[in-house]
């Protein structure tokens, strides 16, 4: 799980695409998902997400992320199905509208989360930050914050697994099947995770300042991020997705 956001090198069209185009594509998929309530369109968008993985040469990773998200989706689906009371009752307290809303919510979650995770696996975080600064004129501090937050996710996951290991050594039984008990065991672990996160963030900020972080401007990066045919294709697909979702609601 810690290699979730590890960049997979390659020369696929998705690798060659300008990072800004990738972000636009990701946003377009998300906007399209929120414009429509049509389950078929949402299913199409989900298939499109998986296609992004295939085009980027990260098919296995795409399905592994999809599998991970499915677990959360099942939980979310049950909650939605139980709490939406509109529509005709099918069984117990579950209604037809509840099931449809639950399906739409879950599909939307999958459609929105997948491309973001996939884009991160085919793009270096530094390229995302630099292109946002160069192309969109975003202040470097914001771009750096964004990419650092993403880069820290696997590190925090590793830290959490180390903390759980340390607590297991002290006799804490995390393998209990009682969900409430497990939650009670996990809550105290937020303290060391928070402390280590704050320390790590502080150390990163100091290291960045020591290397002239505040002197960085738009011209500082040596790499230029141009737009090519593949980017044009990306923008067209983005526009088509939004238009399609707006038309077939």
């Amino acid at each position: 799980m810690t290699d979730l956001f590890q960049v997979v090198p390659g020369n696929s069209p998705l690798h060659r695409m300008n990072p800004v185009t990738k972000i636009v594509l990701t946003l377009a998929v998300s906007v399209a998902a929120f414009l429509t309530d049509n389950l078929f369109v949402l299913l199409f968008l989900l298939a499109f997400d998986l296609m992004i993985g295939v085009v980027g040469g990260v098919t296995r990773k795409a399905f592994s992320i999809f599998k991970g998200l499915l677990k959360v989706s099942v939980f979310l689906f049950i909650l939605q199905a139980l709490f939406v009371r509109r529509g005709n009752r099918l069984f117990w307290i579950v209604t037809d509208e509840g099931l449809l809303t639950a399906a739409a919510v879950v599909l939307r979650l999958l459609v929105v989360c997948l491309p973001l995770a996939l884009i991160m696996t085919v793009t270096q975080p530094s390229d995302i930050a630099n292109s946002l600064v160069q192309v969109l004129h975003l202040p470097y501090a914001y771009a750096f914050t964004l990419t650092t937050a993403i880069r820290f996710i696997p590190q925090f996951m590793e830290e959490m697994s180390g903390i759980m290991e340390a607590q297991t050594a002290r006799g804490v039984e995390f393998d209990t099947k009682n969900a409430a008990k497990k939650l009670g065991m996990l809550l105290p672990l937020c303290v060391p995770l928070l402390i280590s996160s704050v320390r790590r963030t502080g150390a990163t900020a100091t290291a960045a300042k020591a290397r002239g972080f505040e002197l960085r401007t738009r011209q500082s990066g040596y790499k230029r991020y141009g737009f090519g045919a593949v980017d044009l294709m990306g923008f067209l697909v983005s526009a088509a997705l939004i238009a399609g979702a707006a038309l077939i609601r």
Binding site: I163, Q167, A169, R170, G171, E173, I195, S196
Partner: peptide, 24 residues
């Protein structure tokens, strides 16, 4: 052996104490 049973017999001190400390 169960985790709690093992912990009675084996104590483990890690390199990083901050992973172990979790109380105020």
């Amino acid at each position: 052996t169960r985790v709690s049973e093992r912990a009675k017999q084996v104590g483990f001190l890690f390199q990083n104490p901050d992973r172990q400390i979790c109380e105020n």
